[in-house]
Design a protein around this nucleic acid. Structure first.
Lengths: 97, 97
DNA sequence: TTATTTGTTCGTACATTTGCGAAATACGAA
DNA sequence: TTCGTATTTCGCAAATGTACGAACAAATAA
């Protein structure tokens, strides 16, 4: 009995998992609506410790959904456009949208 | 500093979390494509123990994405249409589809 | 040099998730 | 009643996730 689960399904699950926390959902929606943000701004808005925020950002980075670029002294976060497009496409298919 | 995270974002995160595992993604895609299935069929296809499968089905049920109806001696699983539509709508908005 | 700003990493604690096999449940059939 | 089928629940172990504050790192400002 070999693996019936496709690579696409695994990829979709990976993206979904990264979206599966309210804080990360908030960050993603912000980035969809305004294309970029700074970690510092987020930590002022969100009721969590900086270290926790940092972990959530790392989770989104590891899933490939966002990327950070250094803009001393801050770090600017944006969607990873390529992967974001892939995620949209995968969800669009899955959800029949 | 109060909660900036909306109920919609929490709901979306909840759905995403339920989708965040390859086995559950597989089950959902199956239900999207064929509307219903039996737990027994799944356990023949998927390389996991029945008890594990049962847990994944419970997770999807708790998230509201699927529902099971008894058809002795089996249980038939289908998408929960209302919530599925809501999830589609939330994702459609989020992903700008 | 020392202080400040911005963000990550470390250590810790606790909760949740994932997985299994064994036992339990529910019910129709023999 | 006893047996067989279909599925869930239990008990357990291991891995992951969430969260915090303290310590650290890197670069600029004073």
């Amino acid at each position: 009995m070999q693996d019936q689960i496709t690579e696409e399904q695994k990829r979709l699950a990976r993206y979904a998992k990264a979206m599966g926390h309210p804080v990360r959902m908030y960050i993603l929606e912000l980035l969809v609506s305004q294309s970029c943000c700074y970690s510092g701004d987020l930590s002022e808005i969100l009721p969590i410790a900086k270290s926790t925020l940092s972990q959530h950002l790392k989770e989104l980075k590891d899933a490939g959904l966002i990327q950070g670029t250094i803009e001393r002294p801050k770090i600017k976060y944006c969607l990873n456009q390529d992967n974001w497009e892939q995620a949209r496409e995968l969800f669009r298919n899955f959800l029949r949208l």
